[in-house]
Amino acid sequence: MRRAGGSACQRYFQANGFILMRCPRAVQRPRASLCVGDAMSEQEKRRALRKRVLKGATIAFNNRSSTLSCMVRDISETGARLRVPKGQAVPSRFDLLIEVDGLEAPCAVAWRRGEEMGVTFEAPPTRGKPARIQAVTAIARNAPPSLRRKA
């Protein structure tokens, strides 16, 4: 039987100054110092900080005789999130090759959701000489960006 005041979590949040809404996330009042939106957000669950990227990569398997192209969406020291076109069957273990960085890592699939998959690196990634160079040229002169109007 439920108590009249809601669940134990709801009573805790209300007692500590949080406002509960219909949304499953709790919204905090400005005076509170703890964010409760997700009690344990995805960043806190991860062992290593992930960096958002958008890089083309290659999935190599069968002793690198078979390859698939993919996009790296984010990467860390321990794994990455990849986007693979629909309909491509990806094995559970493979080598990930990122030409722009010269990175090679043996991977194991941790999860799959639609076109995306999370992989963990089975060994620390090795960085070799990049196969190609990513060249970015500046359009403007080397002045720091400013919001001031030009006179």
Rank of each mutant, 00 (worst) to 15 (best):
S92C: 09
R3D: 11
R141M: 10
A138N: 08
L97I: 13
L103Q: 07
V109I: 10
R22E: 15
E99T: 02
P124L: 03
Y12M: 13
L54A: 13
A110K: 07
A110C: 04
A8H: 06
T67C: 10
C35G: 10
G37Q: 14
F61P: 02
R127A: 13
F121K: 00
C9F: 07
R81C: 01
T137H: 14
M40R: 07
V53H: 07
A143W: 11
D74M: 03
A48P: 01
N62M: 14
S41E: 13
K51Y: 13
A4D: 12
G56C: 06
P130M: 07
F94K: 03
R113D: 01
P130D: 08
R73K: 15
G102C: 03
E116L: 02
L34K: 11
G56R: 15
Q28R: 15
P124M: 10
A105P: 02
V53D: 06
R47M: 04
S146P: 01
T120D: 02
F18E: 02
N142G: 04
L49K: 14
G17M: 06
L20S: 04
K55T: 06
A60C: 05
N142V: 09
R31I: 12
S33Q: 14
M1K: 11
R112V: 01
R46N: 09
E115Q: 09
K129A: 14
P106L: 03
P91L: 09
P130T: 05
C70W: 00
Q43M: 01
R3H: 13
S69R: 15
L147N: 09
N62L: 11
A135I: 12
R93M: 11
Y12G: 04
V100S: 14
S146L: 09
G87F: 01
A8C: 01
F13I: 05
R64V: 01
I98K: 02
V119D: 00
T58C: 06
I98W: 02
R52D: 14
V27L: 09
G17R: 06
A143V: 11
V72T: 09
I133M: 11
G128C: 08
Q134M: 14
K45T: 08
L68G: 03
R93F: 08
A60V: 02
E44K: 13
V27A: 13
E42D: 15
K86F: 11
T58N: 01
V36R: 08
C9R: 12
N62S: 14
A123N: 05
A32E: 11
D74L: 01
V90N: 00
R46A: 07
A151L: 10
R148N: 09
G17L: 05
M40H: 10
P124H: 02
N62E: 14
A32D: 05
Q43A: 15
I75E: 02
R29H: 12
I139L: 15
Q88G: 01
R113K: 11
P24I: 05
R113W: 00
M1Q: 07
S41G: 15
I133P: 01
A110L: 07
F121S: 03
K51A: 12
L103F: 05
R81E: 03
E99W: 00
C23V: 12
L96F: 02
K86N: 10
A26W: 03
A123I: 02
T137C: 09
A60T: 03
V100I: 10
F13V: 04
R47C: 05
P144G: 06
A131D: 12
E42M: 07
R64I: 03
M117Y: 00
G37Y: 05
A143D: 10
A89Q: 09
P124S: 09
E122V: 07
